[in-house]
Design a binder for these strands. Sequence first.
DNA 1: AACGATATCAACCGCCATAGT
DNA 2: AACTATGGCGGTTGATATCGT
Length: 238
Amino acid sequence: MKLVQEEYRKGPWTEQEDILLVNFVHLFGDRRWDFVAKVSGLNRTGKSCRLRWVNYLHPGLKRGKMTPQEERLVLELHAKWGNRWSKIARKLPGRTDNEIKNYWRTHMRKKAQEKKRPMSPTSSSSNCCSSSMTTTTTQDTGGSNGKMNQECEDGYYSMDDIWRDIDQSGANVIKPVKDIYYSEQSCYLNFPPLASPTWESSLESIWNMDADESKMSSFAIDQFPLSFEHGRSSWSSL
DNA sequence: AACGATATCAACCGCCATAGT
DNA sequence: AACTATGGCGGTTGATATCGT
């Protein structure tokens, strides 16, 4: 029973928070959300952390527009299972239940509107779900689709790109997700190799700690002295 | 260029299931 | 067995972007 009801942060996540979360998920895994939330010093609920990770920061996410194949699959599976979004999402690698849910809402709205005015002159667009898509992207590669490519060309730095960078930089060294982004602004972040053996051994005590949580928190904050807001726009603003 | 309508997406809320004590 | 904490899920909302006039 919790006697103290803390005031948790809400609303959009900042870059700083994202970086913190990613690194602490690397350290502690993506299960113990409450623990991660506390230890990271993020003033967020575990739920909120989980949601951010699952819907935005997870390395396997595709993002970008649905491919025609995916759209068809969503339709099929929804016909089969109804609004079981997470179940449907499991059949679409790289897609989240939230994304599919959002897509479906849009899709249904379009459908409803088309029914209202079936002979609209510009109604070439019944294809909200397929025919107009010209790109033939592979479905499971986690690759980028048309929109994604365009965004990259425009300077948009997608999570895919970020994680690719992480992969290329070596598995053991956890890079801050957006350090390239920062470095372009001459804001360097220096991480210790968090996954190093020394770290791991020192972490053992953390599993049993309570009182030491604050230490971890202060570590976390010390690593990221930056503070500025970011939103969808900031990703593409460079 | 300005403004309203619509689309998109991120995030929160409340409920439920399950694991742990 | 009962209770609590936590995670997961689906529904919903609000902010922002884009489009059309």
